Computed example of a mutant assay.
Amino acid sequence: MCASYGLDPRFTDAELLAEADEAVLDGLRSWAQQNAGETLRPTGKNLRNVNPLVTAGEGGATLESAWWGYLVDGAPAKFPSINTRSERLQDRPGGLRSRALVPATGWYEMQKPDRVWHEFGLGPGVLFGMAAVTQRGRTPDGEWTTCYSIVMRPSPAHLAGIHDRIPVLIPTAFADDWLTGEPSRELIDAALTAAETLDERVSAAARPDDKGEGMLF
């Protein structure tokens, strides 16, 4: 699963949207600077994180703050919800009714049994989008917000020895399709095919500073 990820404000290569929206990119950079390089982790019972999410607005892509993981009856879901398997969406495409892109410059996974954290990405400073499905949820203080779950797929061969699954990365050319396409088995199949075009660019490096430790789910 995707346990945590990073958003470096120094990103220079924006591979998030086919037609880069400067307002979205400026908003991301400003948010990341305020976040001061902190790792983005799921929101849990004792940890309240709201992170930037790219969604489809009336005038095009828009940026909003969202809760990582689903909320049920005003509390974090008791079932695993920070990630959603692509196979589940293929079997139940109704889960694709609302979608988003999660902007990141890297994500972190632990290699077992060595318990060594690795950072995955498309290269230093490269901004990319991870596929997500969304739904509305009510926070413990009664406010309604967007919640998101990152879509995961089996890892390509060169990464499978580190972790068995990776996020579905959305190339710029497919970003609009992912955000606005009709929810269907065909959409998730096309997203998986598009994601495979980035496989050769994905690399992983060990992180001796243990970026993923201290997470609360």
Rank of each mutant, 00 (worst) to 15 (best):
P76D: 07
D177K: 14
V116Q: 15
P52N: 00
P9T: 09
T12Y: 09
G57K: 01
L159R: 03
G95R: 04
G129C: 03
L63P: 02
A194C: 10
T43Q: 03
P208C: 02
W31G: 12
A195H: 01
T39G: 04
L179W: 02
S203G: 11
T134E: 00
E213Y: 05
A100S: 02
P140Y: 01
P9I: 13
V102E: 05
A20Y: 07
H118E: 14
A131M: 04
T43C: 11
L17P: 10
E143L: 11
T193Y: 02
T43S: 10
D73G: 11
A23N: 13
A23V: 15
R92Q: 14
S184I: 01
M215N: 10
N46C: 00
A175K: 03
G60H: 00
P80C: 09
S81A: 13
A160E: 10
N46R: 06
P208G: 05
S98G: 05
L101H: 05
W68D: 09
L127I: 07
I162G: 06
K45Y: 09
P124V: 14
F128E: 05
G129F: 00
T39C: 04
T55R: 05
S65G: 12
R153Q: 12
A56N: 04
L127Y: 03
V202F: 03
A206H: 07
G121P: 15
D189K: 14
R207W: 03
E15C: 14
T134C: 02
Q33S: 15
V126H: 11
N51S: 07
D210P: 01
F174I: 10
P183E: 02
L96S: 12
D8M: 09
V102Q: 08
Y70H: 11
Q111K: 08
M152Q: 12
P183G: 08
G94P: 04
V50T: 09
